[in-house]
Design a protein around this nucleic acid. Sequence first.
DNA 1: ACGATAAATATTGTCAACGATCTACAATTT
DNA 2: AAATTGTAGATCGTTGACAATATTTATCGT
Lengths: 236, 236
Amino acid sequence: MDHASPLGGPTGPNALEVLRTSSMSRVVQGEIEKIILSGVYGPGEKLNEKALADRLGVSRGPVREAFQALNARGLVEMIPNRGVFVQQITRHDAVAIYDVRAGLFGTACRLLAERITADQMANLKVLLAQMDAVGARRDLEAYFPLNLAFHTAIVGGVGNRYLADAYSALVSRLQLFRARGLVHGGGFESSNIEHRAIVAALDARAPLGAFEAGYAHVQSGKHRVMSSGDGPEAQI
Amino acid sequence: MDHASPLGGPTGPNALEVLRTSSMSRVVQGEIEKIILSGVYGPGEKLNEKALADRLGVSRGPVREAFQALNARGLVEMIPNRGVFVQQITRHDAVAIYDVRAGLFGTACRLLAERITADQMANLKVLLAQMDAVGARRDLEAYFPLNLAFHTAIVGGVGNRYLADAYSALVSRLQLFRARGLVHGGGFESSNIEHRAIVAALDARAPLGAFEAGYAHVQSGKHRVMSSGDGPEAQI
DNA sequence: ACGATAAATATTGTCAACGATCTACAATTT
DNA sequence: AAATTGTAGATCGTTGACAATATTTATCGT
């Protein structure tokens, strides 16, 4: 099975720009991350240095450097003299990650409530309406990107790089916890109700209410995911 | 000036154990991190690969791998074909980091309020009393470790690895923002009052109140630091 | 046939070297 | 004199090679 296209193929938009701004190891890191998050390797599976290097058309050096970065981001586990393995996220871990994510998302809502612009507010309401419409049709394929855009608009809208980075690091780790599981809908209604509560609090410029709404929303998402079997799937 | 002792010297407890469990690049990473956080290199200063490698008695490979990890942790900035530089934390950045830290610390307090044990509660009260006593004497040297222990007891007491890691990553970054500045006291009283509010909320097992108390405490700390000149110093 | 031991293979950790890129300085031109 | 161009040195990015460690396979003994 093709895990990755050997570099030089249609990897990026234009290889010229990529290779000038980014170093090889950064490209390699992105490729390996895509491979890991795509789920083809499975949690706990070993990542062979030489095999990856050959597949990506580079030597082991850049691969090892990429491993260090991925390890710091919590996507792989490194055991000295043994090798690098895809990080295993247990059910217990996922709960812990969701708790932190809830706190960060709530914080994002709180901070955004203190500084949200009219344009941002309007954008969120548009997304909300679209999600309502799509949710009524139970169209999961269309709902997913809208939901992602909604969350991104909130977390990114704060304009706090450190908040956004920490949040996306948690989301990445959480992606490791859907061991090849299918995406499974359900909970459109409650999710949309929570979204409305968040927007309402933001519209009222109520930091405390916004925090609570955001925190509760992620916690609800945690319960939705956790209550649906061992190898979980949805993230609404 | 001696930036670091060449490995093999009295760096760690016993080099044998360290070298068996940890790889060289991990040791190197720790050494470089200590060097950076010690502040001898100054924000924005360049870290020369060969110079660091020579000083640590290794080749450039492990140093480059350590750089990747430190970059992912936000302690250095890597510019392709230019080099690695100590991350610069501007005043604006520090404010952003404090905001995230406030949210995380508040979340820690909230989660801890839901599960704190009697032993943990007692420990916090002991620390609180000690800080009161030391604060009354205005003994900053003694206050600092107690304050650190108090915060660590809360964040670590939750038992959430991801929360603790994210929090300490922010604290590390924040350390970059005391550009060789002296530690400057002041605010003992307000800080202690806030500590008491946190403990009271935890004792009452009140998640919401605990969050607010923790969040407000870090925000107050932010204002204490930010209001004291450009190159800030204290972190109480 | 099963388990323990030993050789063989594979993989990791580290290093030194090579080409590519950048930086600093001097010579030249306007 | 200021700006620009050209060159020399330093530094970075990558690679291939070697030693150390782990894993697999083969062999031996009970």
